[in-house]
């Protein structure tokens, strides 16, 4: 591609669009379904249930330590499909690009997306590109949708939690949200905190194929662990109790939280899952998660109770309890 900046022409559907697809996009995402260049992708799937999910990505900044908007968009949808207990297979990508966006940045984002899909073993089979006039979008927005196949016998849902279930988290919380926040202009932190953006499909497959009973899988993204636990407590009409001392938080992440008055329980994760597992299988599932490259720091953080349905309680380090409510609005840096 000769141009250095994305022009409105790149979204026109004409020659310039075609050359961008042929020269930039196709070589990166290459697969038989996409190469056909039909209006949609046609593919075979195994018999049984499908899972289908979509998500849009508007993160600011678009590049941050540990990733960029591209792998975030691919991993995010892979994870959403995986949390249905499905094996993600195919992904669609919709790009909305602001006029004047540097082609080299776009290339980097697309390369990262291709890398993320390849790593997860998922194909990007259809897509779309639109270019909007300067100021009508902020640099680049990405939508991804994904389809996955649910293996026979797998039945996970936010409504399946049962009293006695142990709750496992696959690693440290709040890494992604704090990374993005720290890289925003104005806050000016230096640290080695990185986004945890990662595909969790292999971890999920290992768990669901282990023969263990799995009730709930969820990735605590926006709203953080606290909000996700509230969703599950209300979907399943159960109480949830977690233990503050068991919550894994990286030192630097905790540091930023202290500085800005944030609660890590309400900060986004992009490469973590929580699993609700009956006590008998909890130890085994924990071991399986720990074997995965993205699950080394997995721990049990609490359990499901039949008291106070719909409510989430935290046992604090000093032995007190407090209610963990859903996040009500965006957390803002405070000085007080």
């Amino acid at each position: 591609m000769a141009e250095e900046k994305i022009l409105l022409d790149h979204g026109s559907g004409g020659k310039v669009s075609h050359s961008m697809f042929a020269e930039l996009i196709l070589p990166l995402f290459e697969n038989p379904e996409l190469s056909k260049q039909d209006d949609g992708a046609i593919f075979d799937v195994d018999k049984g249930k499908l899972a289908f999910s979509t998500d849009s990505y508007v993160v600011d900044p678009i590049f941050f330590p540990g990733g960029n908007i591209g792998d975030l968009a691919v991993n995010g949808t892979i994870n959403d499909v995986s949390m249905c207990g499905a094996v993600p297979k195919f992904i669609s990508v919709g790009l909305i690009i602001e006029e004047g966006f540097p082609v080299k940045d776009l290339k980097l984002i697309l390369e990262t997306m291709a890398g993320a899909a390849g790593k997860a073993g998922v194909k990007i089979v259809t897509g779309d590109t639109k270019v909007v006039p300067r100021g009508k979008a902020d640099k680049i927005f990405i939508n991804t949708s994904g389809i996955g196949v649910i293996p026979k016998g797998v039945d996970v849902s936010g409504g399946n939690a049962e009293p006695g279930d142990k709750i496992i988290i696959s690693g440290t919380i709040a890494d992604h949200g704090i990374t993005v926040l720290s890289s925003r202009e104005g806050l000016r932190f230096d640290s080695d905190i990185q986004s945890d953006s990662a595909p969790l499909n292999r971890m999920v497959s290992s768990i669901t194929s282990s023969g263990c009973d799995i009730h709930v899988l969820r990735d605590p993204t926006r709203g953080g662990l606290g909000t996700t636990l509230n969703e599950i407590a209300s979907q399943s009409r159960v109480g949830i109790k977690i233990d503050e001392l068991s919550l894994p938080v990286r030192g630097a992440v905790q540091g930023v939280c202290e500085l800005l008055g944030f609660d890590p329980l309400y900060i986004a994760n992009e490469g973590k899952l929580i699993a609700f597992v009956p006590e008998k299988d909890a130890g085994k599932v924990l071991e399986i998660i720990r074997q995965d490259e993205f699950g080394k720091d997995a721990v049990i953080i609490g359990e499901v109770t039949n008291e106070d349905p719909g409510k989430v309680f935290l046992q604090t380090a000093i032995g007190g309890t407090r209610i963990i409510d859903m996040l009500t609005g965006e957390q803002l840096p405070r000085i007080c």
Partner: peptide, 27 residues
Amino acid sequence: MCLAVPSKIIEINDTVARVDVDGVIRE
């Protein structure tokens, strides 16, 4: 009121210092 966190001074430049809170560095 008044959130404030103990931070270690690692560099001093006139009236501005760089401080460290467990790996988070800022001015």
